[in-house]
Design a protein around this nucleic acid. Structure first.
Lengths: 207, 207
DNA sequence: TTTTAAGTACCACGATGGTGGTACGACTGC
DNA sequence: GCAGTCGTACCACCATCGTGGTACTTAAAA
C-alpha cells in the first residue's frame, strides 16, 4: 500500500539497525526502505529512495550526522529527519536541530516512543522532548564556543601547555590564554581541566 | 530441539535488544530465552532460565555489568558470559574478563561476528580479540590506578584545586600532589588535564 | 620474615596557569 | 555608519601546579 511511512535508517551499529528494522517492519503503517552505515551511503541512498522519515545517528564514523542533515536539507528542504543519540545533554543535538532535524531521541528510549516520534514527524509535527527544548533555549542564551575556542580546547585536552598550543596554532601564548579564559567562562569551569571534562561531557570535543 | 544454544541478553537499550533478538532467533541453532534491562532483572532471570550464553552490556543503569558477572559466576562458575561495549579501549573490559567473562565484543561489530562469538563461547572457547588480549597484557604490566588515585582523579576532573581535594579527602595538599604525580606517570599524561582526558577515554572515570 | 605497594607527609624551587586590565583590525548585521 | 563579535596581542601580578627529593606506617604478598 502506498500510504505506508517509508523509513530510512542511518547508523553505524548493525545491531541497532537490525532492531530498528525489526521494529519498523512490524508496524502495519511503516516500512523500512533502506539502511546506511555511513555518510556517503546515507546521501546516496536518500536520493535513491526519497524516504518519508530518516532516522539518523548523530555520530557516524566518516562524518557527523549534522553535516549529513545539512547536505540533505540543502537539496531536499522538506526532508524529515529524526536524530538518534546515545548521550543525553549532547550539545551536538542543538546544532542538528538548527540544521533542520525535526526530532530527537535517545537510543535508550522504549521502542514505542520511537514509533510515536516517527508518526508525528511524518505528520509534519516537530517532536523535541520538552527538556531538550528548554535546554535549547538555555544554550541559546548560553554562549557556544567558537570554532577557534573548540580548537584550543582540543589542544588543552591533549595536555598541551599554552606555549605549545600557541606554536601549533601560530598565535601568541597570550592569545591562547585569552581563548582559554573565554572557554572557561562559557562553560562555567574553574580551570582548564574542568573545561575539558565539561567539553567531553557535552560532546564539544570527542573522546 | 534441545541442542539449540539458549541465549540471554542484558542491555538497557531496547532497540539493541530488539536487534539481538531478531538476529539470534533467525539462527536455526540458537534461541533467545530471556532479556533483561538492568542488573536485578539480569540476576533473577539468569537463575530462572540458566542460559547457555549470556550477552551482557558493560554499562547498565543500576550497576556495572562487571558486578553482575561477579555475582553470577560466584553462584554459577560455569556461566558463559560475553561482554558488549560501545567503547574501544574501555578499561572496564579488563576487569570484566578478570571477573570471568568469556568473550568481548564491540557493539559496532557486524552481526556475523556476534554469532561466531556466541557459538565459540558456547563451545567452551574463550573469544577475546587479539588486540584486546595484547592490551590486556599491556595493561597488566601497565600500572592500574589505585582506588585512591581514581578518587583523586575524579576530583581533578571536577575542577578542584589540590587544596580543595585535600580538604575533601582529609589528607594534606602534599599528598594530593603525590597522588596526582603517580596518576600522571601511570597514564602517561603530561599534566592533570591530559590525565583527565585519558581517564575519561579509558573509562576510569565516567562522563 | 623480608619485601613490596599504598597511602600518608614535608620541603623548596622553578614552571605554568589564571585574572584583570586595555587595545586594534576584520567582519557582520542593523 | 555603528554596534557587536571574533581573533589577535601585550602586560603585571599572584595562585597553582609539577618535580625531585626523603621518610614513616600499614597491610599484603612472597
Amino acid at each position: 500500500m502506498s500510504d505506508q511511512i517509508r523509513v530510512f535508517s542511518v547508523d553505524d551499529h548493525p545491531l541497532l539497525r537490525e532492531g530498528i528494522a525489526a521494529l519498523v517492519n512490524n508496524q502495519p503503517d511503516m516500512v523500512l526502505v533502506a539502511e546506511a552505515s555511513n555518510g556517503a551511503e546515507a546521501i546516496q541512498l536518500f536520493k535513491q529512495h526519497l524516504p518519508d522519515v530518516t532516522l539518523m545517528d548523530l555520530r557516524l564514523p566518516d562524518m557527523s550526522g549534522i553535516d549529513i542533515v545539512i547536505a540533505l536539507r540543502s537539496e531536499f528542504p522538506e526532508a524529515r529527519i529524526i536524530m538518534l543519540t546515545t548521550f543525553e545533554g549532547d550539545v551536538e543535538i542543538h546544532r542538528a536541530l538548527q540544521a533542520g532535524a525535526r526530532g530527537y531521541l535517545l537510543k535508550n528510549m522504549p521502542p514505542s516512543e520511537l514509533l510515536d516520534v516517527i508518526r508525528q514527524v511524518h505528520a509534519g509535527k516537530k517532536r523535541i522532548p520538552p527538556e531538550i527544548a528548554s535546554q535549547l533555549a538555555e544554550h541559546m542564551s548560553d554562549q557556544n564556543l567558537t570554532e577557534r575556542e573548540v580548537e584550543v580546547l582540543r589542544q588543552v585536552a591533549d595536555g598541551n601547555r599554552n606555549r605549545d598550543i600557541a606554536k601549533k596554532l601560530f598565535i601568541s601564548e597570550e592569545t591562547v590564554k585569552v581563548h582559554i579564559k573565554h572557554i572557561m567562562e562559557k562553560l562555567g569551569a574553574s580551570d582548564r581541566t574542568q573545561a575539558v571534562s565539561i567539553g567531553i561531557r557535552r560532546g564539544i570535543i570527542q573522546l
